[in-house]
Computed example of a mutant assay.
Amino acid sequence: ATLSIAYLPYIARVVRGAALRERSLPYVSALGMLGMSGRRICLRHLVPNLLPLVLVQATTSFGYTMLDVAAFSFIGLGTQPPTAEWGLMVANGSPGILSGRPEQALYAGLVIVVFVVACNLLGGELSRRLRGEDR
């Protein structure tokens, strides 16, 4: 919950910039000239146009949030044993690296990397699909 609040300004900054750009488009002025209220323009046109951007940003940020959770657990500030958590698994397996048994730390670290890359790829694919681009 705390990390989601910490990432909120990054998403809000991107959405704000997109909202300002969208608001300056001619169709918004035309809707205002037709007598639509600002609230109706926002709820009916701006929010649906910005929703894909929010979804993509949230998907991408989720991977980085999980990376932060793993980092906090690795340094001892996250979940504590016996709870299974990737960063904790890396921390518990790190002494095995020097003794020639790196499997636990290696596999947990690999899962973290694969998860973050998968979230980024999912965010990129969502962005392409929601914009209607072909490969």
Score class of each variant (00 low, 15 high):
Thr2Asn: 03
Ala6Leu: 15
Pro9Thr: 08
Ile11Gly: 09
Ile11Trp: 04
Ala19His: 03
Glu22Met: 09
Pro26Lys: 09
Val28Trp: 01
Val28Asn: 05
Ala30Glu: 08
Leu34Ala: 15
Gly35Ile: 08
Met36Cys: 10
Met36Tyr: 14
Gly38Gln: 10
Ile41Tyr: 00
Ile41Gln: 00
Arg44Trp: 02
His45Ser: 05
Leu46Val: 15
Val47Asn: 04
Val47Arg: 05
Val47Lys: 02
Pro48Thr: 07
Leu50Asn: 01
Gln57Ala: 14
Ala58His: 01
Thr59Ile: 08
Ser61Arg: 01
Thr65Ala: 15
Thr65Tyr: 06
Thr65Cys: 12
Met66Arg: 00
Asp68Ala: 15
Ala70Gln: 02
Phe72His: 09
Phe72Glu: 05
Ser73Leu: 05
Ser73Trp: 09
Ile75Cys: 06
Leu77Trp: 12
Leu77Asp: 04
Gln80Thr: 13
Pro82Asn: 07
Pro82His: 06
Glu85His: 07
Glu85Asp: 13
Glu85Trp: 05
Gly87Ala: 13
Leu88Thr: 08
Pro95Ser: 05
Gly96Trp: 09
Ser99Met: 10
Ser99Pro: 00
Gly100Thr: 08
Arg101Ala: 13
Pro102Phe: 06
Glu103Met: 12
Glu103Gly: 03
Ala105Thr: 08
Ala105Phe: 08
Leu106Glu: 07
Leu106Phe: 14
Leu106Gly: 11
Ala108Met: 04
Ala108Arg: 03
Gly109Lys: 09
Gly109Cys: 11
Leu110Pro: 01
Val111Ile: 15
Val111Tyr: 10
Val111Arg: 03
Ile112Thr: 09
Val114Met: 12
Ala118Leu: 14
Ala118Ile: 00
Cys119Gln: 07
Leu121Pro: 03
Gly124Ala: 11
Gly124Lys: 11
Gly124Asp: 15
Leu126Val: 06
Leu126Asn: 07
Ser127Ile: 00
Arg131Leu: 12
Arg131Glu: 14
Arg131Thr: 07
Arg131Phe: 00
Gly132Trp: 09
Asp134His: 06
Arg135Glu: 12
Arg135Gly: 12
